[in-house]
């Protein structure tokens, strides 16, 4: 059995430390844009849960995942989620992120499935890239195998259209054929609020409730809702090496190579992925407001600053998505 299922408990009503109803400023037309984004995401979560037979919520422990989880709580509490959560575990994790994942599962009392890339390697489904090799692309096989095994017909993800030029083209409900592939030339029309979730057996959908959110929206929402995140999103001192223009954290997966100097810097992470490919950024932002100021002033995109997996070619994200990547 390649998949681990963590124990679940009764459903908790509270996901954050919030005590009272948050103040909601309105804009000139009556409703704040964060309320519209929130409301839209809740609508999508409920619609997919109702239209599909066996959805699953993908949870990486990153900030977008944390926001998505928060929105799922808002969509379905006081009842439990009508779907399990699933983490595709590369094995190249930041310990803080794994701890955050387990903490959230415990607090919420929801069911978590862990689909492990190491299991895919052990069973010979994918080749081992070696101790320090990236497992980014291998996740696709692990993800698709888990979708097949559990007969999931929809997988929620926290991807946003502002992250990448291929994602900018993708539908909120994005169709995947029986091989898990995305065909950007044959996307279903998606009109108004009419999210249409029916697929044939073996096909599935990816559902992206945060499609219209920007990085700044996500951070402003995190601030407003006081959403808990892994500590690595805030500035801390860490040993890093500079490699391919990125600051990689020295860890059991990243060892300094010949000629690379280890520096101790104040850094934070803007995204969280495979630890061998996810770069840190220099930062002194230790609070959410400081992070918002930093994000608003940044001249480099979120993935451009931190993701080695997007630098392989002009259309790296599109190529991976076609194969079935997140």
């Amino acid at each position: 059995m390649p998949l681990r299922v963590l124990a679940s408990r009764s459903f908790a009503a509270i996901v954050t430390a919030q005590e009272t109803t948050v103040h909601r400023p309105k804009d000139a037309h009556g409703v704040h844009h964060l309320d519209l984004l929130e409301s839209q995401a809740i609508f999508i979560l409920r619609e997919v849960a109702a239209e599909c037979e066996r959805p699953v919520l993908l949870f990486s422990g990153g900030k977008d995942s944390a926001v998505l989880l928060h929105l799922a709580v808002k969509a379905f509490r006081p009842a439990g989620f009508p779907f399990p959560m699933m983490h595709v575990d590369t094995g190249h994790n930041f310990p803080e992120v794994l701890a955050f994942r387990d903490h959230m599962v415990e607090v919420l009392g929801e069911r978590l499935i862990v689909a492990s890339v190491q299991d895919s390697i052990d069973r010979g489904r994918v080749a081992d890239p070696g101790e320090n090799g990236s497992r980014n692309r291998l996740q696709t096989t692990t993800l698709l195998d888990a979708i097949t095994e559990h007969k999931f017909d929809a997988a929620f993800g926290g991807a946003r259209r502002d992250e990448d030029k291929a994602r900018a083209k993708e539908r909120v409900l994005s169709f995947r054929d029986a091989f898990g592939q995305w065909e950007p030339r044959k996307q279903r029309p998606e009109l108004w609020h009419l999210y249409q979730g029916k697929v044939l057996p073996g096909e599935h959908l990816r559902a992206f409730p945060l499609s219209d959110w920007t990085e700044l929206d996500v951070w402003q929402y995190i601030a407003r809702e006081r959403i808990e995140l892994p500590s690595i999103y805030y500035a801390h001192e860490r040993d890093v090496v500079e490699r391919d223009g990125m600051l990689l954290a020295v860890s059991e997966f990243v060892h300094p190579r010949e000629g690379e100097a280890v520096q101790r810097l104040s850094v934070r992470f803007r995204t969280v992925g495979d630890a061998t490919l996810t770069g840190a950024v220099r930062s002194t932002a230790t609070t959410v407001d400081e992070v918002i100021a930093e994000v608003a002033g940044s001249t480099v995109s979120e993935r451009g600053a931190t993701r080695g997996d997007d630098k392989f070619s002009e259309t790296a994200m599109e190529d991976r998505k076609r194969e079935g990547y997140f």
């Binding site: 400023p25 309105k26 804009d27 000139a28 037309h29 704040h32 844009h33 964060l34 519209l36 700044l216 918002i292 994000v295 608003a296 002033g297 940044s298 001249t299």
Partner: peptide, 13 residues
């Protein structure tokens, strides 16, 4: 560089 909007006066188009 992104301008931080004043949420009380900006609106979405």
């Amino acid at each position: 560089m992104t301008e931080l909007l004043d949420p009380t006066t900006s609106s979405l188009l």
